[in-house]
Design a protein around this nucleic acid. Structure first.
Lengths: 346, 346
DNA sequence: CTGTTAGCGCCTTCAC
DNA sequence: GTGAAGGCGCTAACAG
């Protein structure tokens, strides 16, 4: 029924071994023979059997990319960049690698499940993106999985995620970025800043919040717990949190959000409360996603080089670029000052 | 080295076949035996070999999702919904299916490559999302691939893409949506409307534009070719196109964009030109992505039920929902009137 | 309900 | 540079 390598061999009048060799291209084959084989492949419309190939070779052409939320451009941009470096010639058999993105939805269980699935598929490499959940049991479980993958020859790269043993890590300097941002606000004269943090148990949340607090502390501003609210990384959370912050302290002059999406929700809440941005309240985000510049007023935020970092992670995963010394590199953000922040009122 | 099914069998003192049966769960096994096997699996930390399994069974647990641009929430939202119906129990061996999203970047070649890769992996199902390229050769090539996949037992579902033989299709009524939108504008009194279309060769572009023209024709408004500009589906294209439209005809009172992202660019261009929205010029988008409501003013647009359609496509791909009669279903959009459109000036 | 027996299609030494 | 042979780990009939 389906065409196999043996069929191709028969048509090209060579042995199956030879066909395999021209397909994989990693073995000397006479030009004329190769020609004949390729023609047979074409005529028969032959498609390699991936599973059979992976079974025999004990490795596959699959490269997994794990993301927390595929509907969030933060991850989409990174995934796209990673993938652009992974697709294209370079794999076994025919040259292409199958870069596949897996959406964990931020769930630790799904993350582990996908890691197992990828392990099961004998993936060539795996890239884990975005912040991690800090629960000790989960961290241990992931480290365990990563070690198994590494032992099995799967290269594991972390992109925008804190370091972990047995994996190469490109971490974002969320703490430094958070600090810069808050210092910018403090520099403008703000003293009563609300902070909308992400979900409690995530590293990204913690690091950005710590940066914010570092800045407050450095300037002798009391860190009133009333001025921090936690929520999801989405617009609605930003909206709700802003109303809550305003309720707790109507004298706030600035709101720092966990990311740009949350900041957008904050802006909406402020507008709906009759407050002007930045005249009454300044707003800042994080990430500098494409829409940040289109907000009205444009969002002050910290730009993270998502594309660049993703591309680099992809190259490292493919073994096309040297891992950073020590296996860890820190990627810094850049403060983008725009119209949403200004001097405080009064 | 690595633990195999035979090792598990030995430890549980049963035959490999029995282990396979409890793992796949599709065959009666005594509870006590199952218990013993599961314990052995756990103790040995056994992970099924996907390729071997797929080879023997002639099908894999992989489900492919093709998207044009993973960094675009339009696709991210659909992919997320599709995947939510695909992951989870139901697959062979251990219950999980590996839903993988492949980013074609809108390139016909990459689309075909991914289809081949998925065919090579003996994917259980494939979902193609978003508009298609209309080039005849490419259409034929895709149809050919789809037929091959279908013949090999891979279920193929199209989501937000025009029908094709051998595949089940959930199409978006882009034409109807486009018509509704333009009629809304005409109803407000607009007569000089600019239109920013997407890339020329895409079905989505063509259908939305046709809907727009249908509306103009239905109201006896001349369709001046000067008032239509093509560009990519991104913000910058919207920005540039708007300046161009304004240059060609400064008397425009409304701009209809191919999608929300483009509309955002249009808004920016208008603002930068000193024009107020909607007082001077009305703006409309398409899709109703999450950020549309956060634009200032909020964007009038056509909501496409991306999540619902994606979820349905996912269920159909998994065989958990009946395909629509005739294999084709049309999904309609809903006009969302917001602040970005109003009566024309003067 | 469980064991036995053949492959699934390919890669990879090993010879020539 | 090319062929022959064995086996990768699992599943799917068949028996029993």
């Amino acid at each position: 029924m389906t065409v196999t390598l043996a069929d191709v061999a028969a048509r090209a009048q060579v042995s199956p071994a030879t066909v395999s060799r021209v397909l994989n291209g990693n073995y000397p084959v006479a030009a004329s023979t190769r020609e004949r084989v390729l023609r047979a492949v074409d005529e028969l419309d032959y498609v390699l059997n991936g599973p059979a190939s992976a079974l025999a070779a004990a490795t596959s052409d699959l490269v997994g990319i794990l993301v927390n939320d595929i509907a969030d451009p933060f991850f989409g941009i990174m995934a796209s960049a990673i993938q652009s470096e992974i697709g294209g010639p370079g794999g076994r058999a025919g040259g292409e690698r199958l870069a596949v993105v897996c959406n964990t939805g931020g769930s630790p269980e799904r993350e582990l499940t996908y890691l197992t699935l990828l392990q099961r598929q004998r993936a060539a490499a795996v890239v884990l993106t975005g912040g991690a959940v800090e629960d000790a049991a989960h961290v241990a479980a992931v480290e365990n999985k990563v070690r198994k993958l590494a032992d099995a020859g799967t290269r594991v790269v972390l992109c925008g995620r804190p370091p972990s043993p047995d994996a190469i890590a490109l971490t974002f300097d969320n703490r430094g970025g958070g600090k810069q941002l808050t210092e910018h606000l403090i520099g403008l004269g703000h003293r009563r800043l609300g902070y909308i943090a992400g979900p409690e148990e995530r590293t990204t949340t913690r690091h950005r919040l710590e940066g914010h607090r570092d800045a407050l502390a450095a300037h002798g501003i009391e860190d009133d717990p009333k001025r921090t609210v936690h929520g999801r990384y989405d617009r609605q959370a930003g909206y709700d949190a802003t109303l809550e912050l305003l309720r707790r302290d109507p004298s706030l002059t600035a709101v720092v959000a966990a990311n740009d999406t949350v900041a957008l929700g904050a802006c909406a809440a402020l507008r709906d409360s009759g407050l002007r941005i930045p005249d009454d309240v300044s707003v800042a985000g994080f990430d500098d996603l494409p829409f940040a510049v289109d907000a009205v007023p444009a969002l002050t935020t910290v730009r993270l080089p998502l594309s660049e970092a993703g591309a680099r992670a992809g190259r490292i995963a493919m073994g096309r670029e040297e891992p950073p010394p020590g296996g860890i590199a820190t990627v810094h953000g850049e403060l983008m000052v725009r119209g949403s922040t200004g001097v405080p009122r009064e």
